[in-house]
Write a protein that binds this DNA or RNA. Structure first.
Lengths: 192, 192
DNA sequence: CAGCCAGACGCAACTTCTTCGCATTAAGCT
DNA sequence: AGCTTAATGCGAAGAAGTTGCGTCTGGCTG
């Protein structure tokens, strides 16, 4: 029904999924997201539309699948020598990527998928994994580390809220402020 | 192009918009959100599909408009005698309403509209208004009041993050915890 | 108050998308 | 190698989305 539960990983199903996903990425780059249709994607992928409808149900689910893949971080967070520096760098990059036109589109597409299939949850898991990696590294240095839940509440959630609901009120200064709050070096109500 | 900028408030346009919105609400209750189509809505509203397409562009924009209207609070927040009680009650109700299947759908639909038209920003404004009303009332009692930005960061954003990305990790205990953090009575990393 | 103008609507034809049954093919298993 | 299961291709039928054109409503001017 989706990219999950591919019963035959090495077989034709896998190839079809791969070529369809690739077709989505290609066509999105060429024509823009709003021009995508199932028949168009299917033709580019070399399959029939009915195959896409059977496997993904509708365009939303397909785009949701592809969007989540794009939101997956491709590398562990960079090491800047201290938790504060690592967190700031990660948060700023996160905010920049997610608040771009493309980033917001991916997030919205990911949220559109069936909640039961967990595409949205996967987005959060990606951020949590990155934060956990930062924390483990900092703990190795002997630094005190807030737990991941706290970082999600204090840094990620406010960033995502602004990205989705108040895109004009996002800035590097605000991001740094959130990191400061998370590390206990400034009050939640300090200047923004 | 949308519910905004209705040039002739008392005229036919207004009646059409009203009947279309009502048709969306009725059909959504009867058939479920996924069964909605423009022709169906238009038939129920007594207009032709082309009218809907011309005024709203597509189904997404129409649903976005209707969703935002539903998210508008219908009354000022209840008065429970103290800021803490008011905030807790408001936050719990907010979380309950928004995390319901219908609530999540409304939020997702609202996010789907054209970002330039500010349907998403309006959602945030509604919450900000309610929080501001709470704050003004508490200040009238002589209580110290966190500013609205802080409450959005500490209470609303984490709630919304869980509603959208981690619906299974939302609880009244968590909501109360967030309110405690906002009022400075517990650390961000206390038990959840 | 009568007539004019701009904008919105209805109608209808057309295009595209979506769904469905059935035949075919590929993958996994013994 | 042969068999079973499941996914894909194909094509037709139905539904939805799109567009141009004529009509009508409502507001405005003289």
């Amino acid at each position: 029904m989706s990219s999950r539960a591919t019963t035959r990983p090495g077989g034709r199903s896998a190839r079809v999924q791969q070529s369809v996903h690739q077709a989505v990425r290609d066509l999105e780059a060429e024509l823009g997201r709003d021009a995508l249709t199932v028949p168009l994607i299917a033709a580019r992928a070399g399959v029939t539309p009915s195959t896409v409808y059977r496997r993904w149900g509708d365009l939303r689910e397909l785009l949701s699948d592809v969007a989540v893949e794009r939101l997956r971080p491709d590398a562990p967070p960079a090491d800047h020598g201290s938790l504060r520096a690592d967190l700031e760098a990660w948060a700023v990059q996160f905010a920049e990527e997610m608040s771009s036109t493309a980033g917001r589109t991916y997030i919205r597409d990911a949220l559109l998928g069936d909640p039961e299939q967990g595409n949205a949850a996967r987005c959060s898991d990606y951020a949590a994994e990155q934060l956990k990696a930062l924390g483990v590294r900092a703990a190795g240095r002997g630094e005190a580390v807030p737990d991941v839940e706290t970082l999600l509440d204090v840094v990620v959630a406010p960033l995502m809220y602004r990205i989705l609901f108040r895109p004009s009120d996002l800035s590097v200064a605000y991001t740094d402020h959130l990191v400061g709050v998370a590390l206990g070096r400034s009050a939640p109500l300090s200047p923004r």
